[in-house]
């Protein structure tokens, strides 16, 4: 089976974000593999272990620098990479179209993984758009994936630790959630080996994507400023609890 993993090159969540030209960020910072995509790669490797002969292909739409993220996925166990190179930022409609076109051109997907969301744009929708374009069933925030008699049985997490269980026929699209597995971080030899794995570069325009009439464009980015002015509560434990109680009652009005 061919297992495709759509990965994203995202700014490190601990990095400071600087806004330039009103609607973009200064990209001179550390980028890495989107954390949810790590779960996707790890799960694909687990499936491949049980289905020998499978191939794992990591696909990424991004600037040339995104090859680093593809190499991270290769170090974690993907066999080869596809980089859809584009200097532009694309919304999730175009992203899904590009990923679909590249996957279709490359092979026959049995399973397509994404992370349940990217930690930069936090759009939560690319997996569903890929699924709709291929007409494949989709599940998101998947925290358990079993392959039972040729079907995928998944737990799709809800809040409060509960989950719905869905059955999907192959091929299908899975949005990996954090509970799915513990990411398998690469060893030094894995990293060395990943450098020799093939990464094919495809120019975005070569995919000849029909532009959609629908779109989402960021017109402005502003820093989310904190305007909190901390006040100290002092006293012994009893006095402090009384003050908190009063604040909850009179100020926050939640009691």
């Amino acid at each position: 089976m061919q297992l495709y993993i759509c990965v994203k090159h995202v700014p490190d969540s601990a990095a400071n974000i600087t806004i330039v030209e009103k609607n973009r960020i200064d990209e001179n910072l550390t980028f890495l593999l989107n954390p949810y995509d790590e779960h996707a790669v790890t799960e694909a490797v687990r499936i491949k272990d049980n289905l020998p002969g499978s191939e794992i292909i990591a696909v990424c739409l991004g600037k040339d620098d995104a090859e680093k993220t593809l190499r991270s996925a290769l170090a974690m166990g993907a066999d080869r990479g596809l980089l859809i190179a584009s200097d532009k930022n694309h919304d999730s409609i175009e992203t899904a179209q590009a990923l679909k076109a590249a996957i279709e051109q490359d092979g026959n997907p049995g399973l397509i993984f994404t992370g349940k969301e990217s930690i930069d744009a936090e759009g939560m929708q690319t997996m569903f758009r890929i699924g709709a374009l291929f007409d494949f069933p989709v599940a998101t925030n998947v925290v358990r994936l079993d392959i039972e008699s040729g079907r995928a049985v998944v737990d799709s997490a809800l809040s409060g630790g509960t989950a719905n269980t869905y059955e999907l026929s192959f091929p299908c699209v899975i949005g990996a959630g954090r509970g799915l597995n513990t990411p398998r971080y690469p060893t030094f030899p894995d990293v060395v080996k990943s450098k020799k794995k093939p990464v094919k570069k495809i120019a975005f325009p070569d995919l000849k994507i029909e532009p959609s009439t629908a779109g989402m464009n960021i017109v402005e980015l502003e820093p989310l400023l904190q305007s909190r002015d901390p006040k100290e509560i002092t006293g012994d434990a009893g006095e402090i609890a009384e003050t908190i109680m009063r604040i909850l009652k009179d100020e926050a009005k939640v009691i």
Partner: peptide, 18 residues
Amino acid sequence: KTSQYSGKTIATIKITGD
């Protein structure tokens, strides 16, 4: 409006569609 980049920015997004 929504937040992006781990809640570090507010994005204003122009949307087009039927």
